[in-house]
Design a protein around this nucleic acid. Structure first.
Length: 728
DNA sequence: AAAAATACGCTTTTT
DNA sequence: GCGTATTTTT
């Protein structure tokens, strides 16, 4: 993309219009690859050049990564001027405002943000406190009910008022108790960040006025995926002047399960009758072949406003369809293609493999390892939810906010010091009774008469309290990374890892990575640095961890891939039951969302697109046969070429005939092997045994042991050199 | 209270 | 089939 030096010359008329509209509500409907980020960035640059001070502009993006990129672009165009720009995700922006102004609605400026593990722990406690049976009322389900209520700005009280069934009543009560517990912890959960922000704007008039006067322009990206709370927050902030710019694409709305409401976008003109509407329809990203294929897929959606996408890009190659036998062969096919693409001059970092569910990354990862292809996995077991990382953060959290009992209870017995559930509960009880923080009680355990912790546990608690007291002294004097070191050292965390985990070195390595992140805050005053660091860590999203300069192919869910683009895209698992996912099959509107998800994936591709499906896939242990995705049926034959190993993959029928079901279950237990010999699922012919399907192939000395399922004969183990197998 | 054994449930997507 | 949660054992 050309540099942003001249904001106008390299924009098309629609883009230019979107950049130049001076004020008022503005809706930009932007198809994939139509340069919406550019328009947003240029608009900000233009506003600043027109004399709007950066600190009077608020821009909201979907991920922190997008925010970072946008800031970089603005700064590159303007110099350091952009420092005052308020730019981040809804959650990050809300957190920042709440730290500064939240006291007006009774918030502690040192509040911590609870992640879902903390939330679950708290909800479990709420369930317990209410004397509910956790099997009948699963804390998880309650939590998700509470979360959607909060997304719609419903308080526990409001929820109780509209309860029609027993379940709703229980949810309302659990919500109320859960909220009390959050309060005791001086903690907010993700949804609270938005809801409390709205409460702040609604209730604290002075704050509302101040923020409304401060921000002359409010710009929101990915508007199709905002939930009611976010929408209200945006509206309130832009109230008065009404200089609200929103950018979105209804066809890319994929977060309805997270309470995102596409109507925020569709009804924008209704809510703002004087809104200007601009359509960005020229695509700069993809080849014609890819764009046309994408349109074929999305046009089957009934509930949509068609948009006339077009491109001047070259026609490009047709997409490749690969039908593999199972998920292992599917992954192998990806690996083979990646190597071929590298031969053709593509870099691995130009390539991404996308899938519906995180579980699908595994066979792909395994294939990458077998073939020696470097990769970057986005999401999955995320860095910040690894146990050792969470432990370390929990220590810091407690030091930052002594009210954080969830954090305290996480570290109370890590490393093991003989302080279990009973001690934790007593600590909590006594703290509440005395009006102290649980941490204070621990620190003063020695002189607390009424604390019924005796014997060994008492001594351990006193020792723990001393340790924490010593660390607490250091908070004001050290930047987060030094504090982290200090904590790990005093606590003896490394020894703990060595004694308890076979992979202690890897885990320690993760902590040094955390140290690196923490050292990014060294320039701020210690207290502020600690808070910001913990906030960043809490609000980090999956894609935020994606490194552009990283080596290797990217493995990513379709959801997380929104907003990204790659020269080469593989979409795996195009099967009924996976994409669209089985949980959506009974609801037409959910199927439409699945289709949009497929559309998002397809439109990430610039030059090459590979669509893959497997005939069989092991799903929760058992192998299942899945038909081709209905989305494939929308694509005319001539838009696809069949790929794989230069000939069609085995047909479903043959595969079925050659396998007696129980034996194949073992196929999932295959071990890594030389990729060259036989792939699982390959059809072979034996002189004596006849036709069969390879179950696995393992290296053995200088030979390979091939396990083959023969028609009517069952499974045989053969040595590759002696068996004389022929491929069919 | 810690370690070991067993049971269970899980697979949609995430700030 | 696997990883986590809960129960049982020491």
């Amino acid at each position: 993309m050309p540099p942003e030096s001249d904001p106008l010359s390299d924009l098309n008329p629609a883009q230019r219009q979107a950049v130049l509209i001076p004020s008022g509500p503005l809706l930009i409907v932007a198809g994939p690859g139509s340069g919406k980020t550019r328009v947003l960035t240029h608009r900000i640059i233009h506003l600043i050049r027109q004399g709007v001070p950066p600190q009077r502009i608020l821009a909201v993006t979907f991920t922190n990564k997008a925010a970072r990129e946008m800031r970089t672009r603005v700064e590159r165009a303007l110099g350091v001027d952009a420092a005052g720009l308020t730019l981040g995700t809804f959650h990050a922006v809300a957190a920042r405002f709440l730290r500064v102004h939240g006291a007006a609605i009774g918030l502690d400026p040192q509040f911590v943000i609870f992640d879902d593990e903390d939330q679950l722990a708290l909800m479990k406690r709420a369930v317990q406190d209410l004397g509910l049976d956790p099997r009948r009322f699963s804390p998880r389900a309650l939590l998700s009910a509470v979360s959607s209520a909060k997304s719609e700005l419903l308080t526990a009280e409001a929820l109780a008022g509209r309860a029609r069934q027993y379940w709703d009543e229980v949810v309302a009560r659990a919500y109320e108790r859960y909220q009390e517990l959050l309060g005791e912890n001086h903690a907010l959960d993700f949804d609270d960040l938005l809801m409390q922000m709205v409460a702040l704007l609604r209730q604290a008039e002075a704050v509302r006025q101040r923020l409304q006067e401060r921000f002359l322009h409010v710009l929101i990206d990915e508007f199709q995926d905002t939930n009611p709370a976010q929408y209200v927050m945006a509206r309130l902030l832009a109230e008065g002047h009404g200089n609200l710019t929103v950018v979105g694409d209804p066809d890319q709305s994929i977060y309805s399960w997270r309470a995102a409401d596409i109507r925020n976008l569709l009804n924008f003109e209704h809510d703002y009758p004087d809104a200007t509407v601009v359509f960005l329809e020229q695509n700069y990203r993809s080849t014609q072949a890819i764009l046309q294929l994408a349109q074929r897929v999305i046009s089957s959606n009934r509930q949509r406003k068609p948009i006339a996408l077009w491109t001047e890009n070259s026609s490009g190659l047709p997409a490749t369809l690969i039908e593999a036998y199972d998920e292992v062969e599917e992954a192998e096919a990806v690996a083979r293609e990646l190597l071929a693409l590298r031969e053709q001059g593509f870099s691995l970092r130009d390539c991404a493999v996308m899938y519906r569910t995180n579980a699908q990354s595994r066979p792909v990862e395994e294939a990458m390892v077998r073939w020696g292809i470097p990769y970057q996995l986005v999401g999955g077991t995320r860095f910040y939810q690894r146990r050792e990382v969470k432990d370390a953060i929990a220590y810091l959290r407690v030091l930052a906010n002594p009210w954080d009992s969830a954090g305290l209870e996480r570290v109370l017995n890590v490393p093991p010091r003989g302080l279990g559930q009973r001690t934790a509960a007593e600590l909590r009880r006594y703290a509440r009774q005395q009006g102290l923080t649980p941490l204070q009680v621990a620190m003063m355990a020695e002189e607390q008469e009424g604390l019924s912790v005796a014997g060994r546990a008492r001594n351990a608690l006193v020792a723990f309290g001393r340790l924490m007291a010593e660390l607490a002294v250091e908070v004001e004097a050290h930047s987060p990374h030094d504090l982290l070191d200090l904590v790990l050292m005093r606590v003896g965390y490394r020894d703990y890892l060595q004694d308890h985990f076979p992979d202690a070195d890897d885990r320690w390595e993760n902590l040094s990575e955390l140290h690196t992140v923490a050292s990014g805050y060294a320039s701020l005053p210690p207290r502020e640095a600690l808070t910001s660091f913990l906030e960043e860590v809490a609000l980090m999203s999956d894609v935020d961890e994606l490194r552009d300069e990283g080596e290797g192919v990217t493995l990513i869910t379709l959801h997380a891939a929104k907003g990204l683009e790659y020269p080469v895209v593989f979409i795996v698992g195009l099967e009924e039951g996976l994409l669209p996912h089985s949980r959506t099959l009974d609801d037409p509107s959910q199927i439409e969302e699945e289709r949009r998800l497929a559309y998002v994936g397809i439109t990430r591709a610039k030059q090459r697109l590979y669509l893959l499906r497997a005939l069989r896939r092991s799903y929760a242990g058992a192998p299942t046969g899945l038909g081709p995705s209905r989305f494939l049926r929308d694509i005319p034959r001539e838009r696809l070429v069949l790929g794989g190993r230069g000939r069609p993959a085995p047909q479903a029928q043959t595969a079925k005939a050659s396998l007696s079901a129980p034996q194949l279950v073992g196929a999932t237990g295959r071990s890594p092997s030389a990729p060259t010999l036989y792939a699982a699922g390959e059809h072979v012919q034996h002189r004596v045994f006849g036709e069969g399907v390879v179950v696995s192939c393992t290296a053995k000395d200088n030979d390979a042991e091939v396990v083959v399922a023969f028609v009517g004969l069952g499974v045989k183990r053969l040595l590759a050199s002696l068996a004389g197998l022929e491929r069919r």
